[in-house]
Amino acid sequence: MTGTVLFDLFGVLAHHQSTEGKYRLARTAGVSGPAFWEAYWALRPSYDRGEVTGPGYWSQVAGALGARFDRRRIAELIEADIATCSAVNETMVALVEELVASGRRIALLSNIPEELAVHYETHHRWLQHFQVRAFSCRIGHAKPEPDAYRWCQNALREDPARILFVDDRQNNIQAAEATGMRGHLFTTPTRLRESLAQWDAARSPS
């Protein structure tokens, strides 16, 4: 068994925001409709890369909406934002445990702000299994930027061809493959198992 499996977090090991969670977040902001989400996502990359803090990000969102969030509202928004992204895929967590037990080397690459990264490190001990945890807020690069993948390659000291990147977004997979990695577009744990078996078989000596 050779090579490293580099996992995405949200959409693979953890669930994306739920409808209920999104409703809570917009309700906390006091702004509903497309305008809120346009501001939320448009300003997110700098937050994910650690260029602004949580309070700074939410102040920017307020400015884009023509609103004002006081410190209490910002604290509530940070808490609600974390809550919307805190549900993990238990089946995939079990698969991670299985891979580690079998001797598989694993790593993590996630677009994630500092407050959410701290939440995961505090509440999910299984993160300790990852030999490299590349959180965008700490490495200064976010997917699908090529430097995000190159940072992982350097940290792992691994040939890109020996890294299988697992993500649920096609553009992130294509960006990883452009740096020399192999890619697997995640849909189900079963399909991932099949892909890992095929990868191992292709790398085994005949």
Rank of each mutant, 00 (worst) to 15 (best):
L99V: 02
G30Y: 14
P160M: 06
R49A: 07
N172C: 10
F7Y: 15
V96F: 06
M1G: 05
T53K: 08
H16S: 10
A197M: 10
R182H: 12
C85L: 11
E90G: 06
R105V: 04
T53F: 10
R44T: 02
F69I: 06
Y57G: 03
L196P: 00
I139W: 14
D81F: 14
Y149E: 13
H184E: 09
W151K: 02
S18R: 07
E98M: 04
R72E: 15
G183T: 02
H16A: 07
P189E: 08
V96C: 04
G103S: 04
P144Q: 01
Y120A: 00
H124A: 04
Q170Y: 04
N89M: 13
A29T: 12
H184K: 08
T187C: 05
T188A: 03
W41F: 15
I112F: 06
D167P: 14
V5G: 01
E115R: 07
H141M: 03
P160Q: 10
R169F: 09
L108P: 05
N172D: 12
V88H: 01
L108C: 10
A67G: 07
E38S: 11
P189F: 04
S136L: 07
R182A: 02
G21I: 06
A175I: 04
G103W: 03
S102A: 13
E76L: 05
Y47Q: 09
Y23V: 02
L95H: 10
S204M: 01
P34G: 07
D147G: 01
A201Y: 03
A14W: 15
R27G: 02
C152N: 06
V132K: 03
S32R: 11
A75I: 09
R150V: 09
T91W: 07
Q131G: 07
N154D: 15
L192M: 10
S110M: 05
N154S: 14
T91C: 05
S59M: 06
W126L: 09
F135H: 12
L127E: 00
G21L: 11
E20R: 13
L192R: 04
F69D: 09
W58N: 10
E76R: 00
R24Q: 09
E20D: 03
Y47C: 06
W151Y: 15
P34Q: 14
Y57R: 06
R27I: 01
W58E: 06
